[in-house]
Design a binder for these strands. Structure first.
Length: 299
DNA sequence: TCTCACACCTTTGAAGTGG
DNA sequence: CCACTTCAAAGGTGTGAGA
């Protein structure tokens, strides 16, 4: 595949349809459906397969969360596609945009996500899209290798100049893949809006929807990230439920006699939220660990 | 809710070595 | 020259404390 100079180009999308356009699902023919989620989407003869569908499904079952940081944080899982049905000799540009799913802002309450007001992005005029680092490339090249957007970073910095995707924390988003045939002799420049024209093919996999956060809210998402992301391997521990067992052990050590401590081994589905804080007593200056338990769904 | 420093990890590429 | 190994730097993680 031929690498091009435009590695992490930035595109501004018109706000013609800020929310998830319903026509996308109805127009697309889906096949190879696993559960309720399509693994392959076909539109105008072009097929796109979500390669890491099984991972996305695992995360989606817990409501996927993606961390936003000021300097930009990569997505995990990231969007990885396989394309087919392209014209082998034609040039195509690939973009990934991330758009709001609805008009709500959310909060994590009682171990579930619930709307807490009107979305901030509702008044935002433009959305950014991320150009794939091999874009544009010949159709033949795009079909012989996987198309991964692992370089894409998410940020909550509204003044970001690095080309990261700017999102609002505690809002729901979904990635959209845009496949745009390049007009003969004309390279699609990132500052052109023409790629949203009739030849632009847009693919949306509902299982890639996620909640943007600055700190993980759902313990199960944290555990999935640690288990699947190689960069988080340092937080893995041996044995099943080891992370939760360590927490329970810690709670047992600190809890007073008579406090109800859940038995994680006899009740593997026990709901649990764990919070801890360190403080210092004035008399001894020794650290005192303060731990509280909330019974709600976690494990 | 957000930011930051931190330890721990993977990835990457340069330098060194041997056939 | 090529293949392989070693090593250090760069960068990606979640954690936990503090604002």
């Amino acid at each position: 595949m031929q690498a091009c100079g435009t590695t992490t180009s930035l595109v501004k999308l018109p706000q013609s349809s800020p929310l998830l356009p319903s026509f996308v699902f109805t127009k697309l023919q889906s096949s190879n459906t696993e559960g309720d989620f399509p693994t392959v989407l076909t539109h105008k003869g072009v097929s796109v397969t979500l390669e890491n569908n099984s991972v996305w499904k695992q995360f989606h079952s817990c409501t996927t969360e993606m961390i936003l940081t000021k300097q930009g944080r990569r997505m995990f899982p990231y969007c990885r596609y396989r394309l087919s049905g392209l014209e082998p000799t034609r040039m195509y540009s690939l973009f990934l945009s991330i758009v709001p799913v609805d008009q709500y802002k959310y909060r994590w309450s009682n171990s579930k996500w619930e709307p807490s007001g009107v979305a901030e992005h509702y008044n935002q005029g433009l959305f950014r899209a991320f150009s794939h680092h091999y874009s544009p490339s010949q159709g033949s090249a795009l079909m012989t290798s996987l198309v991964s957007f692992y370089k894409l970073k998410l940020t909550n910095n509204m003044n970001d100049q690095e080309g990261h995707i700017i999102l609002h924390s505690m809002h729901r988003y979904i990635p959209r893949l845009h496949v745009i045939p390049v007009v003969d002799g004309e390279i699609s420049l990132p500052d052109k809006l023409a790629f949203m024209g009739p030849e632009c093919l847009t693919f949306i996999f509902p299982q890639t929807e996620f909640m943007a956060v600055t700190t993980y809210q759902n313990f199960r998402i944290t555990q999935l990230k640690i288990n699947h992301n190689p960069f988080a391997k340092g937080f893995r521990e041996e044995g099943s439920c080891s992370r939760l067992n360590r927490i329970i052990t810690e709670v047992r050590h600190v809890a007073k006699a008579g406090d109800p401590i859940p038995d994680v081994k006899s009740e593997p589905n026990i709901p649990l939220v764990y919070r801890k804080r360190w403080s210092f007593t004035s008399e001894t200056s020794l650290p005192v660990k303060q731990i509280s338990l909330e019974v709600c769904f976690i494990y």
